[in-house]
Nucleic acid binder design. Structure first.
Lengths: 150, 150
DNA sequence: TCATTACTTAGAATGATTATTAAACCATAT
DNA sequence: ATATGGTTTAATAATCATTCTAAGTAATGA
């Protein structure tokens, strides 16, 4: 298991690598992202952080999130023009966005697929990142259990 | 070559299929999208339409673009939280977004790749659309010839 | 210590888009 | 033709997420 101390160590490590400081605000923002990995918006992060740190401001949450993105600890994800969502999953993965519930799920990419996708680029295009976004609806898995009451 | 009459026929066809009317505003908005396929924003479309129709309002441009998206004549594309861009290319394709110039290019998808990408989804996820977005920088091809600025 | 720089806060400002509302327009039934 | 009811447009206000600004705090270094 990963302890709180470990978390703040990776964090302060990455921050100082970029010439930045570890602060209580940055630590608590990062920790709420790790605690519930449901791609929260800045406002949602703000709401989760507040109980632990009531004086923190929304602007600071935005600043911290941006900082975490800068040092590659967090990925920013956008669906259409909705608010930016934040994701601490660093493995290469796609996103599935449920148009009905708004829920967002990580979808692991099999080895090689990303390279295959990158291979479609003309040679003069150098991609620094690739985003794969699915939009749709998740049907509850047809399995034994409660009947779908509709 | 496709004439103006043909264009407005497809347009009014699609519109009436959706129970909507063909209007001069919708026609001129659609025509500027076809004329220069560089993924303009609503503001850019507005600027291009104005000379032809000086009284048109920005709100109407937004409305027309939304209408065209609804009847599948135009695709809306988003990069991060930048303004929505509009693309009349209906073939399945990915997008390359140049982080330096802001230019956007369509990238054709080889047959089968989209299915391959969709295949990574768990069975309970039904994707109605897939977006593939590259972000990066294009190195000018060292060669003569017309620029492929689609 | 004192100066420098980084960081946080509160609130104002911005930018893109959507909502509101009144007027103009159009198709059709009378 | 004219009334009617729905559609579309235009101008402007409102909204939402985000960024900017200014002022205060705190850590760091000469």
């Amino acid at each position: 298991m990963i302890s709180n101390a470990d978390i703040s160590e990776t964090l302060s490590q990455r921050l100082s690598d970029s010439g930045l400081r570890s602060t209580p605000q940055r630590e608590v923002v990062y920790s709420v992202l790790l605690k519930k990995r449901d791609h929260p918006t800045a406002e949602e992060v703000f709401a989760r952080v507040k109980p632990e740190m009531p004086m923190i401001s929304l602007a600071t949450v935005y600043n911290c999130l941006e900082t975490l993105v800068q040092c590659d600890l967090v990925r920013a994800v956008n669906f259409e023009r909705g608010p930016t969502r934040y994701c601490p999953n660093l493995h290469p993965h796609a996103h599935f966005h449920d148009v009905e519930t708004g829920a967002t799920h990580d979808v692991d990419l099999p080895a090689g697929l990303l390279d295959q996708v990158k291979a479609i680029l003309p040679e003069d295009f150098k991609a620094s990142s690739v985003e794969i976004i699915f939009r749709g609806k998740e049907s509850p898995k047809a399995r034994g259990g409660e009947p779908s009451s509709i």
